[in-house]
Amino acid sequence: MPRRRDLERTIRGHEAGEHAVGPRYRSLYARAFDMAEDELFGTGRPPIADGTDDEFEALELARRAAASDVGGETLVTLEGVVDELASAYPRSAPDELLVRTRRQLGYVCRLMDARMTLSERRRLVAVGGWLSLLAATCDIDLGRRPEAAARLRTAAQLAEHAEHPEILAWTLETHAWQALTDGRYQRAVTLAQGAQQAAPKRGSAFIQATAQEGRAWARLGTGRETRDALGRVESLVAPLATPERPEHHYRYDPAKSDAYTATTLSWLGDPAAESYARGTLRRLEGTARPRRVLAARLDLALALLAAGQPEEAMDTTMQVVASGRLVPSNHWRAAEIIIALEALGLPEARPLREASRTTYADQRSAGPPRGGAAGVR
């Protein structure tokens, strides 16, 4: 039987987080507070939505092997997980990626109460910021606006706590992308410019925000501002080499520049959009980037309309609609092409409209499409 002063020292140690509560004391605390152990202490792991927990177990094993609450090895592993998830974005169904991202957020949240140095805490907070940002992007893809707004607020707050301007800039750029897909084009310009002000100059967030600004100007129909933004992107991209992981959502791949140019010029109605769109589609065919392939086809369809080639535009749009892989954040792009084809009085536009209605009705009843493609980022 331990002496009273030993018990008091042990309890103070538990309260201060100096050591973990062992099985014996967990039971005693549960009896004292008249609560179940799991309710009082938690299960020690975040809830798993899809029945698999390999990622979590690997992280927890690495942490325990280092014999530390949160140490360098754990943080390196978590930062690697962020890179893996961000690289999976272009080829993953947003609902599936959201499950994986939320799992890691739960783990990071639990680690926040552990002992660590100030530098380690800043790195852990930054990991939480990246994961919140990616989860918000998936929420936008799925049309979950309130959830996305909450996660973006969290990402911005964590970016400030971690003193991480790149995350803050990406948060503003994501807001700009959402405003663009919602049709709030002037707001998208303002947010994209704000992202550029917050971002480290010439970094990935800065380039992406500049490209987003150009797309918003194109939707407003302002040719001079649009081409100015395109020119700035071109000068920023020219000296860049292809990154080690070009599919990484938060590392700008110079090859994205042509795809963005195709989208921007097609929205502006510039005939040059057709060649950019065809070139982009040719390079993407056969790659593991379904989002980019579908977006390139939509760019091509819109450019073909501007070039007076509605038949090919219709065929190209039908390929996109029939794929069943567009998520809510990109339905509007297909819809505007269908409306334009209908305005031309083409009888073939009716089957395209019906296919679109059927496909999206099926998606609403069945949930998010597997392997879906979101709006161009």
Rank of each mutant, 00 (worst) to 15 (best):
residue 1 M to R: 02
residue 6 D to Q: 13
residue 9 R to M: 05
residue 10 T to N: 09
residue 10 T to D: 05
residue 12 R to H: 04
residue 14 H to Y: 14
residue 15 E to K: 01
residue 22 G to C: 09
residue 23 P to T: 09
residue 28 L to T: 06
residue 29 Y to E: 08
residue 33 F to V: 09
residue 38 D to C: 08
residue 40 L to Y: 12
residue 40 L to I: 13
residue 45 R to V: 12
residue 47 P to G: 03
residue 48 I to A: 12
residue 52 T to W: 06
residue 53 D to Y: 10
residue 55 E to K: 01
residue 58 A to F: 12
residue 67 A to Q: 14
residue 67 A to L: 05
residue 68 S to L: 13
residue 69 D to Q: 08
residue 70 V to W: 02
residue 71 G to V: 13
residue 77 T to M: 10
residue 78 L to W: 04
residue 81 V to H: 10
residue 82 V to H: 00
residue 84 E to K: 12
residue 103 R to D: 10
residue 104 Q to D: 03
residue 107 Y to E: 12
residue 109 C to S: 00
residue 113 D to H: 05
residue 114 A to F: 12
residue 117 T to F: 04
residue 121 R to M: 02
residue 122 R to K: 13
residue 123 R to S: 05
residue 124 L to M: 01
residue 124 L to I: 02
residue 125 V to N: 00
residue 128 G to D: 01
residue 130 W to Y: 08
residue 130 W to R: 03
residue 135 A to K: 02
residue 143 G to Y: 11
residue 150 A to S: 15
residue 151 R to H: 11
residue 156 A to V: 08
residue 158 L to W: 03
residue 161 H to E: 07
residue 162 A to N: 02
residue 162 A to C: 00
residue 164 H to W: 10
residue 166 E to T: 07
residue 168 L to Y: 06
residue 170 W to E: 03
residue 173 E to Y: 07
residue 174 T to G: 04
residue 184 R to L: 13
residue 186 Q to R: 11
residue 186 Q to W: 06
residue 187 R to K: 09
residue 189 V to D: 05
residue 190 T to E: 14
residue 191 L to C: 08
residue 197 Q to P: 00
residue 199 A to Y: 02
residue 212 Q to K: 00
residue 212 Q to Y: 00
residue 213 E to F: 00
residue 216 A to R: 04
residue 220 L to E: 04
residue 224 R to A: 12
residue 224 R to L: 06
residue 230 L to T: 07
residue 234 E to V: 09
residue 237 V to Y: 06
residue 238 A to V: 13
residue 242 T to C: 13
residue 245 R to L: 09
residue 248 H to C: 05
residue 257 S to D: 06
residue 257 S to E: 07
residue 259 A to R: 11
residue 259 A to F: 15
residue 264 T to P: 04
residue 270 D to S: 13
residue 270 D to M: 03
residue 273 A to E: 03
residue 274 E to I: 06
residue 275 S to K: 14
residue 275 S to N: 11
residue 276 Y to L: 11
residue 278 R to P: 08
residue 279 G to H: 07
residue 283 R to M: 12
residue 284 L to W: 11
residue 289 R to T: 12
residue 290 P to G: 03
residue 292 R to E: 15
residue 300 L to A: 01
residue 301 A to C: 11
residue 302 L to V: 11
residue 306 A to F: 14
residue 306 A to I: 07
residue 310 P to V: 10
residue 313 A to H: 01
residue 326 L to Y: 03
residue 327 V to H: 01
residue 331 H to I: 07
residue 347 P to Q: 02
residue 349 A to G: 05
residue 357 R to T: 08
residue 359 T to G: 08
residue 360 Y to P: 01
residue 364 R to C: 11
residue 365 S to T: 14
residue 368 P to L: 10
residue 372 G to I: 04
residue 373 A to F: 05
residue 374 A to W: 09
residue 376 V to S: 15
